[in-house]
């Protein structure tokens, strides 16, 4: 398992292998009886004569690239990855290889991330402005990874947060897992009469996008809404979502990140999957690289930011 997003980790198997850091994350996603084996980053194991090791992918807590080696040939499957370190998980490591299978979620030159600091400042200013206007600040973020990342950015971005934080139950499960792993996160409550009273008009709510338009969310009114996702780099995506603000926070590599990583692995062949596969393959070929599309069966049914957000009830 490269990581515990549901388009990669599905329940139903009897045995799973993932990074040891990722074990408690994956455990939330599969049957209680399933056997999960955790492998420390960088430590090799042998399966059917193939040497297998896992390496940090920087995507979310426990996310890993998979390195396989047989008879001197090395191939690496990136899984989902993000190049810039962020403090909620082990930073991405370049793993030299002969063939590199890379994701391409944001494989277009229009996607170039800024540093987190700038985004954190913007989020805090937005929160403060809402508090001054007597409105709750609501950030929509995917329950695993993105939500914890946003909370970590805010927690480490300022000495004292502008107000209390309430999170959706789906977010809370993983906040606990992250906190146990030593990630710095603010105190959070789930939605109760008491926590709502403290939060309403001044606090921050972090919830998956599916709560938009539900009674769960309406209890925090009046509020201002924001969506935290790499897709928010495009104005049309935000406007279609109908949210007030879009904060560009992604757990994937941007265009320069993809290209730099491919180059740094020293690979002679690139397989491109999950995303703008054809664009990236064509571009790499123009640059003289050997590249091909690796088809996937798992697009469009994820709870991560794998594809542009379509509607509010779609976790895409």
């Amino acid at each position: 398992m490269t990581h515990a997003h549901s388009d990669h980790a599905t329940p139903g198997s009897q045995r799973y292998l993932c990074s040891d850091v990722g074990k408690p994350v994956l455990a939330q996603r599969v049957h209680a009886e399933a056997e999960i084996e955790g492998l420390p980053y960088g430590k090799a194991t042998t399966i059917n004569g193939v040497t297998v090791s896992l390496h940090p992918a920087g995507h979310l807590l426990g996310s890993a690239q998979v390195r396989v080696e047989q008879r001197g040939r090395v191939e690496v499957v990136s899984g989902d990855y993000k190049v810039a370190p962020d403090g909620t998980c082990a930073a991405f490591e370049v793993v030299p290889c002969d063939r590199f299978i890379t994701e391409s979620t944001f494989g277009l030159p229009v996607y170039r991330w800024r540093g987190d600091d700038e985004t954190t400042t913007e989020m805090l200013a937005w929160w403060g402005g809402n508090r001054d206007a007597g409105r709750t600040s609501v950030v929509f973020a995917y329950a695993l990874g993105k939500a914890q990342r946003v909370l970590h950015m805010l927690q480490t971005g300022v000495d004292e947060l502008p107000g209390p934080v309430v999170v959706h139950g789906a977010v809370k499960r993983f906040v606990d897992v992250y906190r146990d792993a030593g990630v710095a996160l603010p105190e959070v409550d789930t939605s109760t009469d008491g926590s709502r009273k403290a939060c309403k008009g001044k606090g921050l709510v972090v919830a998956p996008p599916s709560v938009l338009g539900t009674p769960w969310l309406r209890k925090f009114a009046p509020y201002s809404t924001a969506f935290a996702s790499g897709w928010m780099a495009i104005r049309g995506n935000r406007r279609r979502r109908g949210v007030d603000r879009g904060f560009v926070v992604s757990d994937h590599a941007d265009w320069p990140g993809l290209l730099d990583t491919i180059r740094a692995t020293g690979c002679r062949s690139v397989g491109v999957t999950h995303g703008y596969t054809e664009v990236l393959v064509r571009y790499l070929r123009e640059q003289g690289m050997d590249a091909d599309v690796v088809p996937t069966r798992y697009e469009g049914e994820s709870d991560s930011e794998k594809e542009p957000p379509m509607t509010t009830d779609d976790h895409g």
């Binding site: 277009l108 030159p109 229009v110 495009i234 104005r235 049309g236 703008y276 664009v279």
Partner: peptide, 8 residues
Amino acid sequence: ECHSSVGD
């Protein structure tokens, strides 16, 4: 490709 994806 970029133009068609961004739409503007």
